[in-house]
Design a protein around this nucleic acid. Structure first.
Lengths: 199, 199
DNA sequence: CTCTGTCTACCTTCTGGTAGGATGGCTGTC
DNA sequence: GACAGCCATCCTACCAGAAGGTAGACAGAG
């Protein structure tokens, strides 16, 4: 508990970036071993199996995501501003290429070949993100800041799907700007210019 | 050239469904061998390397996609109806679970770990799909059937991203209906009820 | 008699995983 | 303070199986 970055943290961070690049079957213990500078067997000491490693990694990712949402709830008042910051977060990640894809979105695409335990964590992330977006949209609609054409839930699902699709397109084109092109209009549509003055 | 379904066609079809399930690193020659009922070595006779197999597979997928778009251009007059059929095609694929994901969308998510030749084909698909959607939206806007809030290109990118995101969500939730929930409003937004009468 | 498609048999490298030994810090006891 | 024991971490060495791929034999069709 002494140093800020323990070996197991390093392993998790490394595995995360490898998963973001290529998914569950896109990396091996040997890859981590190369990057972290540790033997394969030592990784097994921290995470007995690959499933353990990835389950832990996704669980931690989920915690961070929930913490991020809670933070937006506490520190940001306006629903529109909350969504803007959420999208802005990803725009920054993609632009600086630090983590240009959501771990759970990537893993979800391979759900059929994922170990069950990992799949469950991935699904849970989708549910919790969708639930938060739903609550933000609902509040925005109540306050008259958003004009929803559907139920908050449906709009939230569409919002989430579009953000994920925008990540994919940015990767496919190899152009971070496309993420902004796709997500920008999303916010404008929810809150037409006439309602945006107060934000 | 005698039978309608040659061995190499069977291999391609099998590989396609395996890729749709788990991506490039999610299947092996042995998996195909099991399904098709042929030895691994025989697969190598048709496709010397895995890269050959997947490149061919994606190239063929692209041909089919272009043929599908050309077909819509020829046989369907209204831009709105074209988009409706495009979305409906995927809705059907997802509902009957026959091919519940776009091969290129799935591969695009793993672009960083894809062999370069495959990556090029995948990108080409994104460009051609986006170009077709742009032209459909442009035509619809000219004819007054669509109300675009952005350039046709930007709307096309958003449309494509949302469809891909909807596939992902349907998979994540394990619920085909979510695809319709997300994509339905897409069309309504482009062509508000007041303009939809004629379609 | 060649060419296509399939086979068996084999190779090399990678993969996730295990066994067991060295090191070194922490704790409890005298 | 010295010492024993314990435990966490990392190591070397190994394993079985899966990965993609090759060599060469055989059968049948043209």
């Amino acid at each position: 508990m002494s140093n800020l970055s323990t070996t197991s943290d390093e392993i998790l961070a490394c595995a995360r970036s490898l998963i973001v690049a290529g998914g569950y079957n896109g990396f091996s213990y040997a890859d981590i071993s190369d990057v972290v500078g540790i033997r394969k067997a030592s990784i097994h000491h921290h995470f007995p199996s690959k499933v353990d490693l990835v389950r832990t990694l996704v669980a931690r990712y989920r915690e961070e995501a929930e913490a991020g949402m809670a933070n937006l709830e506490r520190q940001v008042s306006g629903p529109l501003e909350q969504l803007r910051l959420y999208v802005g977060y990803w725009e920054a990640c993609i632009t600086d290429a630090s983590a240009p894809f959501c771990v759970c979105a990537l893993l979800a695409s391979q759900l059929p070949v994922l170990p069950e335990e990992v799949g469950l964590e991935v699904r849970a992330h989708f549910r919790s993100l969708s639930a938060w977006l739903t609550s933000v949209l609902e509040r925005g609609a109540r306050h008259g800041q958003f004009q929803l054409m559907r139920t908050p839930r449906a709009e939230a699902e569409a919002f989430m799907a579009t953000v994920h699709g925008a990540m994919l397109s940015a990767r496919a084109y190899g152009d971070p700007k496309i993420f902004g092109v796709v997500t920008g209009p999303l916010l404008e549509r929810l809150a037409p210019a006439s309602l945006q003055i107060r934000s």
